[in-house]
Design a binder for these strands. Structure first.
Lengths: 373, 373
DNA sequence: CTGAAAGCGCTAACAG
DNA sequence: CTGTTAGCGCTTTCAG
């Protein structure tokens, strides 16, 4: 013992041996007492507990980990933490981990694969129990090899170099339903502003847009597709540009939450009103989407459900369940019909007269689309 | 070596000894080679590096930590991660830590002091280097003792049991400026819906409200103050109640971001328009506040600045700088004047006629309040 | 420049 | 029930 400090103050330099010395017993007895070993004298246990208190003993996780060759961390690697999906994910996974007694390490990759590698390296060195990861598009070979054999769940995105089970939202279905809705209510020039196809999410969502047109036997003008980074500024520029087209779109679908914000800004800037001048379907369902006037029609992700699913997936792998590792889970998005969409004719007819905003917060499950207003 | 697996696949069971055996040298040489020790043969280094690659060696952080009696984690304990302040904080601190080579552990306390204790305990057992903590109001004696002597930053809130330096926003000033503004433009019945005073933030912000009235020599009806949890539902109920008062408020100040959302909902529900029927000043500056029509006047927190300050504070303590530990930093909030506030007379005069929304995203620093529109 | 040896704090046989 | 002993993977003297 290096420091005999004031009582009841935690002192990490105090070891199991110190308390053994203090009590005149052996350190293994102390160890047993602390781990509540079956064959230990109740009296000794009490004394040990007391001494622990008095000396401010704090177990050394590193020593324990070294002995057991097991870490005690769970890693969560997310591309960004401003996104609502990732925000609730962090919350929920952290909560689940706490209940499990395993601290959770949150790392933000900012979609930079070098940062991602760093994080994975650090986590592996710490002998992390498992990782929930949203892979960056450029995920390194090295990163993949580091991840190999570790309990892992791919979250929200999937990467070809990884074989781990995944939990993601069915983005294709989400955009498909949204597009079909617009088609049904008469729109023909529907623009899509989304993420590049290097991310699996980007590719899927775009596919939904294309497929809906194909199914309906409608042409689809490539000039109405704009792919870029998931940053408001990109959508802002893209939408501004779309509006300048000789034959501008009558409806707009956004492929991510951040893009929705950018699109709204662009419309505001251009002085256009939804749904009067243009219909809009956003992505995600931020708390203010329903407060917005008129309520924002959107493709919602069941964020809580996704986070829970990912956490459960990981836990299952950790507890080594039989075929816990199996499968990719694609969670159904939700189509939330509110006020930013209107029939093409309807919008044209009421031109000039201000539409009464619908207060809307009605939700409907995709696909059958039981749409409530 | 337990597993001689395929090349280039990470194998945590491979130790420094395995690679020593593989190369027919001693493990201490390997250790030196890996840590780039000055007196080591360049050729040996190369060979070692190669073998490391081939065998998939991954250093064991626990062993290293045990030897050095130093952990390699930084802890960030936040009450909730939906709040924008905490969201950007997590992002920034994580980023700073990465640059520093220290993984960051994010723990969410949900304002539950038992959870807080758990987190702190786990962190200390892992010999965490330092912690940034937003203390819960009910922070335990035990938690405090666990924290004692550890590099620590109190973030956003301060707790009497803790003596560590703090970084927070000057909430009193923020609400004071906001209240004075309303007073200046003629409001007399100004309601305040905020957090209970058990949190230092709650107490401070309320104090600003009270002080502004005192300075102006105005009475302040206690019935216009509503304190509760920082949850939208509380504000929703509180505002609904305030509106039912015989002499309802003409203006409303919110004491937290979540409460702002709730208040907006209550107004919507009651069919009231800002600023026509009531003026409103929110808290925090979420991205959609400026998109909202009319823009939401609010007390903004320089979130990035705060997060950076906290990270720097901690880093300073970690690098053991002379008097790095000193002082409490209170960051000045920002008063952002947008469209949800209007002079009392003005609002009354235009009664019935719809006010033209100001597009406003003008910002102004408190206190002198160079207010831009 | 390299090897041998000790020891960080803890757990788990194995003897008492 | 308890003490003795060994060893987890690594760094670090101390001798070669």
């Amino acid at each position: 013992m290096r420091k005999t400090s004031k009582l009841t103050v935690a002192d990490p330099s105090v070891t199991i041996k110190d308390i053994a010395g203090h009590l005149g017993i052996s350190h293994s007895t102390v160890s047993r007492a602390l781990s509540d070993h079956p064959y230990t004298n109740a009296e000794t246990k009490a004394k040990v507990r007391q001494a622990v208190e008095k000396l401010g003993y704090v177990p050394n996780a590193a020593a324990r980990s070294l002995r057991s060759d097991k870490g005690s961390l769970v890693g969560l690697i997310l591309p960004d933490i401003h996104n609502e999906l990732f925000t609730v994910t962090a919350q929920i996974v952290s909560h689940r981990c706490l209940k499990n007694g395993t601290p959770m390490v949150l790392a933000v990759s900012e979609d930079d694969s070098a940062a991602e590698l760093n994080h994975v390296t650090a986590l592996r060195q710490a002998r992390t129990l498992g990782i929930i990861l949203t892979p960056t598009p450029g995920l390194t070979e090295k990163t993949a090899s580091l991840l190999h054999g570790l309990p892992l769940v791919q979250y929200s995105r999937r990467h070809p170099k990884l074989s781990a089970p995944s939990v993601s939202v069915d983005g294709e279905r989400g955009v498909l339903v949204a597009t079909e809705h617009l088609l049904q209510i008469g729109h023909r020039r529907i623009a899509y502003v989304g993420m590049e196809s290097d991310k699996s999410t980007g590719a899927e969502r775009l596919a939904g847009y294309v497929k809906a047109h194909q199914k309906a036997g409608e042409d689809n003008d490539p000039a109405l597709r704009r792919l870029g980074t998931s940053h408001p500024d990109f959508a802002r520029a893209a939408v501004a540009d779309l509006l300048n087209l000789p034959d501008p779109p009558t409806a707009l679908i956004l492929g991510s939450n951040a893009l929705t914000v950018g699109a709204l800004k662009a419309l505001r800037h251009a002085g256009l009103e939804t749904p009067h001048d243009i219909s809009l379907i956003g992505w995600g369902d931020s708390s203010w989407f329903s407060l917005w006037r008129p309520g924002i029609t959107t493709i919602g992700m069941p964020t809580v459900e996704m986070a829970e699913a990912a956490a459960s997936q990981l836990m299952r792998q950790l507890s080594n369940e039989p075929d816990g590792a199996a499968g990719h889970v694609a969670i159904e998005p939700t189509f939330v019909l509110r006020g930013t969409t209107a029939p093409l004719e309807g919008a044209r007819r009421t031109k000039g007269s201000r539409r009464r905003a619908r207060s809307g917060s009605g939700k409907a499950r995709a696909p059958g689309s039981r749409l409530t207003t």
